[in-house]
């Protein structure tokens, strides 16, 4: 009986959570779609502040992670390719891997850890401090008020951060290959010949989508926070986990669709 009771409660909680997600998705879609008709309702101050936190404040950590990614990828792939005397092709592998997949993905994971959790904590703290209730009693819709500026900030910040991470990774890879006596000119020639506008655009579009997911999950988890100190911590964790899982799922779907379309 106890087991069935907890199973029932867990199932009810999942249904409630899914229902809240659907409701939030609808409200967010309505808030975003109505913006062109009511542009004055967009809170540019909140957007600017969120953009600065999501982009400029994250630049150092994203660039650092990019360099490390390039260095590690270069070392690991060079170990295998060296057996065939093909170290020079490390640059091709790096370029394809970073622009198509790893640049957007590593940046999204960092954005989830920094910005999505920060959104959840900020909005969760507002909920605990009755600020969300204050908005409701003023007749303002919290989703319309809080969500569009934050999602816009992550959608704008992600491609910029991704470019920084990708360039940093390529420079990290170049440094490793320089140590392996691959001339920089050869390295950059291979990078240029492997990549093209389509590949770079593909990665950047993906990164904008990942930015949307991170902003969306951060706001969603923040708004469904239990109004306690413990609840705010849980909301921040849920935002990070939810963002990373959702980005992984989206990336998987995009990769599968891309493969089928190319095939």
């Amino acid at each position: 009986m106890g087991f069935l009771d907890s199973l029932g409660r867990a199932a009810a909680a999942k249904v409630e959570s899914f229902s809240a997600l659907c409701s939030f998705t609808g409200e967010t879609a309505a808030a975003i779609l109505l913006l062109p008709f009511r542009p004055r309702r967009f809170r540019f101050g909140d957007f600017a502040m969120a953009l600065q936190r999501a982009s400029w404040d994250a630049l150092a950590v994203v660039s650092g992670a990019g360099v490390l990614l390039g260095v590690i990828l270069a070392f690991e792939s060079a170990t295998a390719l060296k057996m065939f005397g093909a170290e020079v092709y490390v640059s091709d592998l790096l370029a394809i891997g970073i622009f198509r997949e790893l640049g957007p993905l590593i940046t999204a994971i960092i954005l989830a850890g920094r910005t999505s959790s920060a959104f959840a904590a900020e909005i969760g703290t507002m909920k605990a401090g009755e600020e969300i209730d204050a908005l409701v009693t003023m007749g303002l819709k919290p989703v319309r008020f809080l969500v569009p500026p934050r999602i816009a900030a992550t959608v704008v910040a992600m491609p910029v951060l991704t470019v920084c991470a990708e360039l940093a990774a390529l420079f990290g890879g170049a440094a490793v290959l320089r140590m392996m006596d691959v001339p920089p000119a050869v390295y950059w020639d291979h990078v240029k010949s492997t990549t093209g506008p389509w590949m770079i655009s593909y990665g950047l579009l993906k990164s904008a989508l990942f930015g949307f997911i991170a902003g969306f999950m951060g706001c969603f988890c923040g708004l469904k926070t239990e109004p306690t100190a413990d609840g705010v911590g849980k909301a921040a964790t849920a935002a990070v986990v939810g963002s990373i899982v959702a980005v992984g799922v989206a990336d998987g779907i995009i990769a599968a669709v891309g493969y089928l379309m190319e095939g």
Binding site: G45, D46, M49, M126, G129, E130, E131, D133, A134, T137, M138, G139
Partner: peptide, 21 residues
């Protein structure tokens, strides 16, 4: 009635609930 009623009431919460930003 919600929109109309929200213009007719004012609420001060226990913490003040001012927007910190």
């Amino acid at each position: 009635n919600r929109a109309k009623l929200c213009r007719r009431i004012g609420v001060m919460f226990q913490s003040g609930a001012l927007f910190g930003s």
